[in-house]
Design a protein around this nucleic acid. Structure first.
Lengths: 171, 171
DNA sequence: CGACACATGTAACACGTTACATGATTTG
DNA sequence: CAAATCATGTAACGTGTTACATGTGTCG
């Protein structure tokens, strides 16, 4: 997945790893927590597969940069992915959903003892506020803003669902 | 993740691989598309790590079953996971979100040519109907039903978001 | 006879993720 | 002086995912 994000960013213009990280952060509004190391591993795999190529740009003092750009193959692969039909309805792999469900499975034999799950619910408010702040900082009409709104809506939906789950548990 | 699902199901009672697959399908209402092979690989890793152990049950004619059960370590690990605080606000890794965003990045240089993305939108209706049918078949008040409702709501939210994205694109 | 349920697995790879290693420059 | 920013990477591991191989029993 990150693979295509990098290809997409590189389609705009060549960049080096450190720079790519900043671009990803900007594009996703900080929504995608990303260890810089992962950029380099992914970039290495893209290079290995011939989707990108790099040129070393020397700098005085600071370490050399390796500036990556798309190859023809890489551009083609990006196009292919963009036009490929997307699997909607991806499974609900979010840890919280799975945890509530598994919790229910285990409960049937272990007796009530929940609460720890919904304890974290408090964090939701904080997360929503911080995303809201980021959204405010975003220029109106940017796709990043669109994404931030989706993230916020999803958090709200998750909160509602946790309420349902809590109600269900009490029943 | 699947790891904990299996541990959760095995907490109820011992089962063999084929049976586990059926249990996962039931618990997730078919929401988690699962290759049977993955059950066996995961089970193998759990066994390797001492979280489960198995006993071979011979059968006449049909191949022998390997019935797995939780070990004490496995039960402890399951408890630990259930009580561990859950990371809410997982990143929006859904392919469709990423694709729309990347599409926008590429557009800025390649000119308009979208539509393929939203083409798949039609499938949403089908998916929602099929999930709805599954939900109807589910006994009221089951956690699986709760999960199915979440899945449906998420699909609806995605559909709305795609409308927003389409509107944004035209703007 | 063909399809499907039953039942098991392996090999191979892709991808995510992190902990670690290295080192210079700038800024408070 | 300490911390942050700039800049690169590797080793290792966990997990997801699939394609393939193997074979019997049952039902239409």
């Amino acid at each position: 997945m990150l693979k295509y994000v990098l290809l997409g960013i590189l389609a705009e213009r060549p960049r080096h790893g450190y720079d790519l990280k900043a671009a990803v952060d900007a594009a996703f509004g900080g929504t995608w927590p990303l260890n810089i190391g992962q950029i380099y591993t992914t970039l290495g795999r893209l290079d290995r597969d011939g989707l990108v190529e790099c040129e070393i740009v020397e700098q005085e003092a600071l370490p050399d940069r390796k500036v990556y750009r798309l190859t023809a193959v890489g551009r083609k692969e990006l196009e292919r992915w963009l036009e490929e039909p997307t699997r909607l309805a991806p499974p609900l792999h979010d840890e919280i959903f799975v945890k509530v469900l598994v919790h229910d499975l285990v409960l049937s034999e272990a007796g009530p003892r929940v609460a720890t799950i919904t304890a974290a619910r408090h964090d939701l408010l904080g997360a929503m506020r911080s995303l809201g702040a980021r959204l405010d900082a975003e220029p109106a009409g940017s796709v990043t803003g669109l994404l931030l709104r989706a993230a916020i809506d999803r958090l709200a939906a998750t909160a509602d669902w946790l309420d349902d789950a809590e109600a269900h548990r009490r029943a």
